[in-house]
Design a protein around this nucleic acid. Structure first.
Length: 568
RNA sequence: GCGCCCGUAGCUCAGUUGGAUAGAGCGCAUGCCUCCGGAGCAUGAGGUCGCAGGUUCGAAUCCUGCCGGGCGCACCA
């Protein structure tokens, strides 16, 4: 990597100036006039050296060994930036790396431990209770969580995708009660849905299916057994529906964790004992409390209510402690921001048990609003008060839905623009990237070379000297760094931005070689050496776009089928 | 009232952790185009970075206070 040589040259030059330790940050300037690589090290040293940054840059410039750094030119610019220009061969050397690594280009081993073994990391996401169809928010969680898990995987972690759901408790009771109302109405009985019942039409579907299976046998049966039967039936149906939705959305989990198992396996009970042993537990007003304020919570929390029932807080602590016990030292929970109130108290409870302060990590996402023609789309009748995830991805397609739901950083509210999502031109950011990929593939279809057989060793990559080629190559080389930034931010939108920019650079390059205008810039030129080099570039573009899309859980088609147009 | 998130072009949003002339897409304007798939390409206009202070060589970015929007503040889950 050219960066390493420059960094080493800068480092030894700095040592001659008496600077032993300096963080040398090299970045690719947005403006190509500022060179291929740039560093602001003179500016960052200004404070500690108590000298003008420009003066530091000048002295540094005199002491840098240009040959050792592998650069053809260096200049001081602006307030004290050092800009470096590389030989075209050095710029293009990354192509050989890309072609050699292929499907692994972008992977790193940051998640490995000292022995080179991937460390375990858990991403818990979606975690919807089986009380209704998955909605838009779950869709955002599914897209985000799956991509964050994939980013971890690419960084060398052993990733575990987990789905936690509440299969007991009040919400499920309300579900059963709601089904009972519709069940009674199904047989013409008087029954009224209570205010806290579930209003969506899907409850009626469940009741009808239940009636078809058991007949009217429970119409006059008000016992707990009849309610249990409805509960079990409804949960089974809704769980199956959620599984179908997620599978069709391309999201799969390694484990489904049942809240009820925390009770049956004794984890809630053992957590109570463990908490009591810490001395942070006290009795007040007939309830059992944990003094979470000791660990930064706003107020102390009730663990066990006056009626002897635990609050939701207790199984939550038990569950997350269990994640730790299973060996997961890194856990990322992806949830809606409406859950942010629970973060401080769960962490406080875990700290009381001796776990570190920031455990677990949370990615909280804001709401999604769907708009068509600039007007908010109303919710579906079937779900009652929200738009379902399935409605969305069936309308716009899974690839588009997944991309749009992760193209914004999670902590920003986002508008889902249906018009743009349904557009099938380069205006649509998803198609723009997929088209760029398909175009690269189409070049190979027209050549006598197969993708993957470009043999960079036989290509003279220094022939790629055009500005568009240099910029495109540099963009490709940024891919590993884009993945690093995305994981640091725990936000796939960084990858979306990166792919959009890289696809734009690829499209510019591709179109600049339009044979009718600039036959010299076409990939498939007569000059065999140049053709080989450009095919290597096209292949590298194909690889990077495909790898990036796979991180986002989006397909990379080799050809785009035209929809809704006739052949002419 | 308290806490968390957000406020950047007409719209939707980036901004690589304090750096160069604040960027992209859409929309708008102008000009190209029978092509290695025109579902295209190029160029341009458009900004008091919510407001007011502060920190320093340097602030969209950090600090304080306001204004506006969202979400939370149960012995619900």
């Amino acid at each position: 990597m050219p960066q390493d040589a420059i960094r080493a040259a800068l480092d030894s030059a700095l040592k001659t100036m008496g600077v032993e330790e300096a963080e040398i940050h090299l970045e690719r300037p947005r403006d190509p006039d500022h060179g291929d690589l740039s560093t602001n090290v003179a500016l960052t040293l200004a404070r500690t050296l108590k000298r003008a940054p420009r003066a530091i840059a000048e002295e540094l410039a005199e002491r840098v060994d240009l040959d050792a750094a592998g650069v053809t030119a260096m200049e001081i610019a602006g307030p004290g930036f050092l800009n470096f220009r590389l030989a075209s061969g050095a710029v293009a050397s990354v192509l050989a790396e890309i072609l050699a690594a292929d499907t692994d280009f972008g992977r790193s081993e940051k998640g490995h431990d000292d022995t080179g073994t991937p460390r375990p990391a858990m991403v818990e996401f979606v975690s919807a209770n089986p009380t209704g169809p998955l909605h838009l928010g779950h869709g955002r969680q599914a897209a985000l969580g799956d991509a964050i898990a994939e980013l971890l995987d690419w960084a060398g972690w052993a990733v575990h995708r987990e789905y936690y759901y509440n299969d007991a408790g009040n919400q499920i009771d309300r579900l059963a009660a709601s089904v009972r109302v519709r069940y009674l109405q199904h047989f013409g009985r008087d029954a009224e849905m209570s205010d806290d019942g579930y209003q969506g039409d899907y409850i009626e579907e469940i009741a009808t299916a239940f009636a078809a299976e058991v007949g009217d046998r429970y119409v006059d049966d008000t016992s707990d057994d009849s309610l249990d039967a409805m509960r079990v039936f409804a949960v089974r149906l809704l769980r199956a529906e959620q599984d179908r939705d997620l599978a069709d959305f391309g999201v799969h989990f390694d484990e489904y964790f049942l809240e009820s198992s925390l009770y049956t396996d004794g984890l809630v009970a053992s957590t109570v004992e463990a908490l009591k042993a810490t001395g942070h537990v006290f009795e007040q007003d007939g309830a059992t409390w944990l003094r979470t304020t000791t660990f930064g919570d706003d107020k102390d929390r009730v663990m066990i209510r006056g009626n002897g029932q635990p609050t939701y807080f207790l199984p939550d602590v038990a569950y997350h402690h269990n994640k730790w016990s299973r060996g997961f030292r890194r856990v990322i929970n992806v949830q809606g921001s409406d859950h942010h109130g629970t973060v401080a108290r769960v962490r406080a409870g875990l700290q009381a048990l001796g776990l570190p302060a920031g455990y677990p990590e949370y990615v909280l996402h804001q709401m999604v609003r769907v708009e068509r023609d600039g007007v908010q789309v109303k919710f579906s009748k079937r779900a009652g008060s929200y738009t379902t995830m399935r409605e969305l991805f069936e309308e716009v397609g899974v690839d588009v839905a997944r991309y749009f739901l992760q193209m914004r950083k999670p902590d920003a509210q986002m508008v889902f623009d249906l018009d743009l999502a349904l557009d099938q031109s380069d205006k649509n950011p998803v198609f723009k990237i997929q088209y760029a990929h398909a175009r690269m593939c189409s070049i190979f279809a027209k050549s006598d070379v197969n993708p993957g057989d470009t043999q960079p060793g036989s290509a003279d990559l220094s022939l790629l000297t055009h500005d568009l080629e240099r910029e495109l190559i540099k963009a490709l080389g940024d891919f590993p760094d884009a993945l690093r930034r995305a994981l640091d931010a725990e936000s796939p939108h960084v990858v979306c931005d990166y792919l959009g920019q890289t696809a734009a650079a690829a499209n510019s390059w591709y179109h600049s070689g339009n044979p009718s205008r600039n036959p010299d810039l076409a990939v498939l030129v007569d000059d065999a050496g140049l053709r080989t080099a450009r095919l290597a570039l096209a292949d590298a573009v194909r690889i990077v776009l495909r790898n990036g899309l796979s991180v986002l859980g989006i397909s990379a088609p080799e050809r785009m089928d035209r929809a809704g147009t006739s052949d002419d």
